[in-house]
């Protein structure tokens, strides 16, 4: 195929990718209760409705999701740092197997993760709560954190840490003064990415959240009531804008990290 027709194809593909998202703001500002064409004229009432006192269930689910996503981001990034550091810097027995197990959730149908955790939590008497959602989310976010942090740690020339050690710093001070500042952008983008994944995750939260729904679980319940849909569209619009901002931030951090390490950019995350 020539470059020209490939380019046309690529633009058509982008339209396919963005079509659903482009509809979001259209219906969020559409003054009609039915999500369908033709459009009825503009309004901002769905956004007002979002923030109205009536929507307490929604507000609670947003708070739940923010709590879950923040804690998940911290824990999965911490676990990711350990695993990525171990995998890039050390050789140990059964390394492939161990890393394979840790990365497994990446290729496991989410429903399997969800039901297996559900069985365990129900049968060891732990019950289900936001904490069980967090446990599930940490499990699926850690592989993403590892993927991001791996490249940060790999970009780190081991001689740089040895140089600090050679110039008189202890192992811990070397980590604090050299390693941490150099991988910090990776850590921040890992926090942001795991936060975003957790915020959007539905299946595990659906199975494990018990009486406190997260935002996606709440959204799911709302999708059944047609009259609530325009509000959902408004909420979706806000979420999309937020995700894009977070992503731009994460990408900027990643590039900043590369530049600081004096490296050429080799592509996006994942």
């Amino acid at each position: 195929m020539s470059g020209r027709s490939l380019r046309i194809y690529a633009f058509v593909y982008l339209v396919f990718l963005y079509a659903p998202i482009a509809l979001l703001p259209i219906f969020a500002f559409n003054d009609g209760t039915i999500i369908a064409f033709p459009l009825q004229g503009g309004t901002t009432r769905w956004f007002t409705e979002l923030f109205a006192a009536r929507s307490t269930a929604l507000h609670e689910s947003v708070i739940n999701s923010l709590i879950v996503a923040s804690i998940t981001a911290v824990f999965s990034t911490l676990l990711g740092i350990c695993a990525a550091r171990a995998a890039t810097r050390y050789r140990f027995p059964a390394q492939r197997g161990i890393m394979g197990l840790i990365m497994l959730p990446l290729v496991l149908p989410e429903i399997i993760v969800a039901v297996s955790l559900l069985i365990v939590f129900m049968n060891v008497g732990l019950g289900i709560s936001l904490w069980t959602v967090i446990m599930g989310h940490v499990l699926i976010c850690t592989p993403f954190c590892i993927a991001i942090l791996n490249s940060s740690f790999q970009n780190l020339d081991p001689a740089i840490e040895e140089a600090a050690h050679d110039l008189g710093e202890t192992q811990w001070n070397t980590f604090r003064l050299i390693t941490l500042p150099l991988v910090m952008p990776g850590i921040i983008s890992s926090l942001l990415i795991s936060f975003t994944i957790s915020l959007d995750e539905f299946i595990i939260a659906f199975f494990l959240s018990g009486t406190d729904p997260t935002l996606p679980v709440y959204l799911w319940s709302q999708l059944r009531f047609p009259q609530r849909l325009p509000v959902v569209m408004a909420l979706g619009t806000i979420l999309v804008v937020l995700s894009i901002l977070i992503l731009i931030l994460a990408e900027t951090m990643r590039r900043y990290g590369l530049r600081r390490a004096g490296l050429k950019d080799k592509g996006g995350f994942l």
């Binding site: 990718l17 963005y18 079509a19 659903p20 998202i21 509809l23 979001l24 219906f27 999500i35 369908a36 975003t196 959007d200 539905f202 996606p216 959204l219 799911w220 999708l223 959902v232 569209m233 979706g236 979420l239 999309v240 995700s243 894009i244 977070i246 992503l247 996006g268 995350f269 994942l270």
Partner: peptide
């Protein structure tokens, strides 16, 4: 990658709309 990071539920629902 951007569309991938927007709410999966809402995206699926929007396909229903489309």
């Amino acid at each position: 990658t951007i569309p991938f990071w927007t709410s999966y539920l809402i995206r699926v629902f929007l396909w229903k709309v489309i």
